[in-house]
Amino acid sequence: MTATLITVAPTGAEHEKSAVPHLPTALDELIETATACAAAGAAMIHVHLRDEEHRPTLDPGRLGEAVAALREATDLIVQLSTGGSVHDPLESRLRVLDAAPDSCSLTCGTLNFGDDIFMNPFGFMSDLYVLAQERQVVPEFELFDLGHIGALSRLIDRHGLPFGGKVHVDFVTGVPGGMPATPAALLAGVAMLPPEVTSWSATGIGRGHLPVLATTLAAGGHARVGMEDNTIYAKGQPVEHNSELVVRAARLATEMQRPPMATTSAREFLGIRAG
């Protein structure tokens, strides 16, 4: 690879605004964040939305409004989370695609998620896969554990390649209940990827952020950063803006002779329709 796809995940569904006041939870905050992160080197934004009380929401109107606003303000690839929060029903998660994003997340298995259970039964995964094919939305396959790689192969075997013909996966490491955020665990997962996979990225939750980022860049992968996954920039130094994490990832990628990938190139790279 000669360039690095940088995805920013600015909000997530876990952090509370009261505990992380710089978390972008209002739409104007999300747009400001997206604009700054695009300028810093991000090509894709992974979106979770919050309601007026800063609680996670999959409200269809809010999703559609956010997609339209992000497209008007930036040229970023807009990826909506179909995970929502661990409490969202499966039917609501399928309706995320009604907002017509460029991309969506597709988590490849159920797992313990801290004290909760993140439900992703195979029937739901299969329905989401086919719906994304029909809607011409490119999925990003989220792998929280090594067993999820087998589920990904099963989906491809059953339904063929996703829309766009590319298979991009993202290792989410460091969730309590999933694979640890260590170089060894990440590289074990990369070694297990099926031949249909055309690219991969990774993120490390919390303290695993930098080790996973460095390993990913060295091993030819791509980067996901953002306050969804990491709210501490360095010991004793909270993240004040998502762009700080994008700037650092872009700097490290450039030092590794793999500068940030432009959005136009990223669309072609992932098999996404032109914006």
Rank of each mutant, 00 (worst) to 15 (best):
G41A: 12
A42G: 10
A43C: 14
A43W: 06
I45E: 02
V47D: 03
H48G: 02
H48S: 03
L49C: 12
R50F: 07
R50A: 06
D51E: 10
D51I: 06
E53I: 05
H54A: 14
H54I: 02
P56N: 10
L58D: 08
L58T: 05
D59R: 11
P60N: 07
P60Q: 12
G61F: 11
R62T: 07
R62Y: 10
L63V: 05
L63R: 03
L63E: 05
E65Y: 03
A66D: 04
A66P: 03
A66G: 03
A66L: 06
V67Q: 10
V67K: 11
A68Y: 10
A69T: 07
L70M: 11
L70E: 07
L70G: 01
R71P: 11
E72V: 12
A73W: 06
A73G: 08
T74A: 05
T74C: 08
L76D: 02
L76E: 06
Q79M: 09
Q79H: 01
Q79Y: 02
S81M: 02
S81N: 00
S81F: 00
T82C: 08
T82F: 00
T82R: 00
G84P: 08
G84H: 03
S85E: 10
S85K: 06
S85H: 12
V86E: 11
H87Q: 14
H87G: 10
P89E: 15
L90W: 08
E91R: 12
S92F: 07
R93L: 07
V96Q: 00
L97N: 00
D98C: 03
A99L: 02
A100W: 09
A100I: 05
P101W: 07
S103D: 04
S103T: 09
S105D: 02
T107C: 09
F113G: 01
G114N: 10
I117V: 15
F118I: 07
F118N: 06
F118D: 10
M119R: 13
N120A: 09
P121C: 08
G123T: 14
G123H: 13
G123L: 11
G123Q: 13
F124N: 05
M125K: 03
M125H: 04
M125V: 06
M125P: 02
S126Q: 15
S126F: 06
S126P: 07
D127R: 15
D127V: 09
L128W: 04
L128Y: 01
Y129E: 04
Y129N: 02
